[in-house]
């Protein structure tokens, strides 16, 4: 599908940094400047309204003391384990429910029910059952990722073109082969979309869970900073949260999504929708 915007964006790839990116940098710089101006205008103590300089100093301080790298690492580990678990379980159940009417009828309603109970609501009960820390957080966050992955896998499985399945079966493929060579690749774009949605909710959920149920991590940093009236640390935590998501999204989620859609999208279009 030729589109004026697509042609333009292909041309823009020639310069190293595009106009849009320069403008983006300008936007960030403007916000920082506006922040500093607001500090001068508002003129309140740093523990109430920290200036960029205070926040930067806190960033250096936390890094020198070894606190920030460890907190970032803790959050990253918790996030990775949770998301991987949720992805695996969501994928497994999505395939199961998508391919078997029995399992779909059996598990469908109860899954829909639990989907309505957001992960945030589970944390108090998990704290009572398991206590604070890693396990509680991983269970809660894997729970978040589970549902979008499951529902999107389901959609993906249900929209597999039967022509392809029939073709494989005519060639004598076993059920396993049909699954691996037709169903999963065909459903992959949906699975990746579900993964992306889940990953987004999971990140927010992680920060919240760390505020309530952890003694380390970026969420804990934000919360603890407020408790000790170190507002500069609170802002450091918030910025680190944004940076971490930026890295996760740009360096992992989007490229993976591009790769699958670029590759399988072509196959889809050829097969006809």
């Amino acid at each position: 599908m030729t589109n004026a915007t697509n042609d333009l964006s292909k041309m823009r790839r020639r310069p190293m940094i595009s106009t849009a990116q320069w403008r983006g940098v300008l936007g960030v710089a403007s916000v920082l400047f506006a922040w500093q101006v607001s500090v001068w205008v508002i003129d309140l103590p740093a523990y109430f309204y920290p200036a960029p300089r205070d926040v930067f100093a806190a960033f250096i301080d936390l890094t020198q003391k070894g606190i920030l790298p460890e907190y970032v690492a803790d959050s990253a580990v918790r996030y990775s384990v949770s998301v991987a678990t949720g992805l695996g379980l969501g994928l497994a159940f999505g395939l199961l429910i998508g391919l078997s009417r029995f399992w779909s009828r059996l598990l469908g309603p109860i899954i829909n029910f639990f989907y309505a109970i957001v992960e945030v609501a589970w944390i108090p009960l998990l704290v009572i059952w398991i206590g604070y820390g890693f396990n509680t957080i991983v269970i809660a966050i894997a729970y978040v990722v589970f549902f979008p992955v499951l529902y999107n896998t389901l959609t993906g499985v249900q929209t597999v073109q039967h022509v392809l399945i029939n073709a494989m079966q005519t060639l004598g493929a076993t059920r396993w082969q049909v699954l691996v060579t037709v169903i999963i690749p065909s459903a992959l774009p949906n699975i990746i979309t579900g993964f992306r949605v889940g990953a987004g909710f999971a990140f927010r959920g992680l920060i919240f869970a760390e505020m309530i149920a952890a003694g380390s991590g970026i969420g804990f940093l934000i919360f603890d900073g407020a408790t000790t009236r170190q507002t500069d640390r609170v802002v450091v935590g918030m910025i680190m949260m944004g940076v971490m998501w930026l890295l996760i999204d740009r360096l992992l989620l989007r490229p993976v999504e591009q790769a699958t859609i670029v590759r399988w999208g072509l196959v889809r279009n050829q097969g006809g929708n």
């Binding site: 849009a20 403008r23 983006g24 940098v25 300008l26 936007g27 960030v28 403007s30 916000v31 990140f203 927010r204 920060i207 919240f208 505020m211 969420g219 934000i222 919360f223 900073g225 407020a226 408790t227 507002t231 609170v234 802002v235 935590g237 918030m238 949260m241 944004g242 998501w245 930026l246 999204d249």
Partner: peptide
Amino acid sequence: TLTPVLSFFQSIAGIAWVPL
């Protein structure tokens, strides 16, 4: 100009602001 900024604020919107 504003899309990166908005994207950043969108990623930390909500929960992260509670302590502040």
